[in-house]
Design a protein around this nucleic acid. Structure first.
Lengths: 229, 229
DNA sequence: TAGCATCCTGAACATGCGTTCAATCTCGAC
DNA sequence: GTCGAGATTGAACGCATGTTCAGGATGCTA
């Protein structure tokens, strides 16, 4: 029984202490960073520090539970991402989760902290974007690429990285109530330059691209984009 | 007497203890992260922990000195960046500083740590890139933009952010000896997809861009942003 | 040589952390 | 009602950290 999708029926007493600790941890890790003390989380959840260890074994155990929980929720929203397209809408997708600001903030913390969990998340987004781009190429809405996999990865890492770099002042403390507005403002600011870049490009001359493309090893791209002259 | 540009005559005894501490701190902060203990730095520099406080007042004092020192060196290399162009060569520029791997690593740590120092650095790179793009537009090598400032910022933040996101496993410990190779490999991997994107774009149809561009406030581009209703 | 400012040491202190643990509470099973 | 297992507490421990401090070493000036 893990229906979290509603998110409104959590009166903080209906939840088990274990779930209350998990929720408080996600929120506190998001606001104060992944190094937030267990005592603070315990106070937020209204329990003693010892209870956290009783339920999760250790600090790392709590962190792993939070990682798993947040990533599960994020992957659930991943399907919607696929419909929108992974390119410049990565931030928009995050922004759409206004009611899950704590988990979005936690995800941002994960983004700047790095580690295997983040790598898995990025890889999954890359794979989804690659599928999306491949479908776009098939129906003619997206230009074919010499290196579809590398392109998908570059687009995802650019989008996520640019977003991450926009949270510099938010390092010490991240205001979750203001997060949705910040992301909204960011997507609006970035919409035109990113779409411009994705539509018109930047360089007039093709020589630089062709010079580098000549060095490519002769690997056939993806499924069957058999492009010849 | 602050000639550091050579960087080869540092036999660790020619330097004052203060400079030795600063160098050890930059290196240790780069490898172990900005939370590295003072005792470790003291051991690296071959001094006692108390001496660090004697010279720098506090841990924050040492951090500020390292920030200033590294940024000064980075800005000195900024001129060369201007000749190469700020677009996709941000990583290449970092990679070129192979002999300054400690400062590059420190810069990466700053990138993931955020804060006012990083904001100033990014702003400066944005301004330099904007100038570069403007010159390119003038001589016809770069396509004009509806929002030159926003485009410059987006390009810089995308490039730096994508680079930052590629150091996930290097979070716990950053191998400075392998850093130059990693950056080199990264630029090679990213060259084709980024040049492809910058040359050909991604989207076939212009309608999405035009829809968003229509919402732009009627401000004339660049030189004379005298926006009125 | 004497004096003195500066460099430098290393032990000690205060703090905050994750964690342990013995004791207490809660509550359903019998 | 009794019992017992799990939930929960809060004090205490051990450790690592930044910082302080009293004193020793060093080297320049007179």
């Amino acid at each position: 029984m893990r229906s979290i999708s509603t998110g409104s029926d959590r009166s903080a007493d209906d939840l088990t202490a274990r779930a209350r600790i998990r929720d408080a941890a996600v929120r506190r890790f998001a606001t104060d960073g992944l190094a937030a003390p267990l005592r603070t989380i315990a106070a937020d959840a209204g329990v003693s520090p010892g209870l956290i260890l009783h339920h999760f074994g250790s600090r790392d155990g709590l962190r792993e539970e939070c990682d798993q929980y947040v990533l599960d929720e994020m992957f659930r929203a991943d399907d919607e991402l696929l419909r929108d397209g992974g390119a410049s809408t990565a931030a928009a997708w995050l922004s759409g989760l206004g009611q899950h600001s704590a988990m979005v903030g936690y995800m941002l913390r994960l983004l700047q902290h790095g580690g295997p969990v983040l790598t898995a998340f990025v890889d999954r987004m890359v794979a989804a974007t690659e599928d999306y781009l491949e479908a776009g190429v098939a129906d003619g809405s997206i230009r074919p690429s010499l290196a579809p996999k590398a392109r998908a990865r570059y687009i995802v890492e650019s989008s996520l990285g640019a977003l991450l770099l926009r949270m510099p002042a938010a390092r010490d403390r991240l205001d979750l109530d203001a997060l949705a507005g910040l992301l909204q403002a960011y997507t609006e600011e970035v919409a035109v330059p990113s779409l411009e870049l994705y539509t018109e490009g930047l360089l007039v001359d093709r020589s630089l691209l062709e010079a580098f493309a000549a060095n490519l090893p002769g690997e056939p791209p993806a499924t069957e984009p058999k492009e010849e002259g």
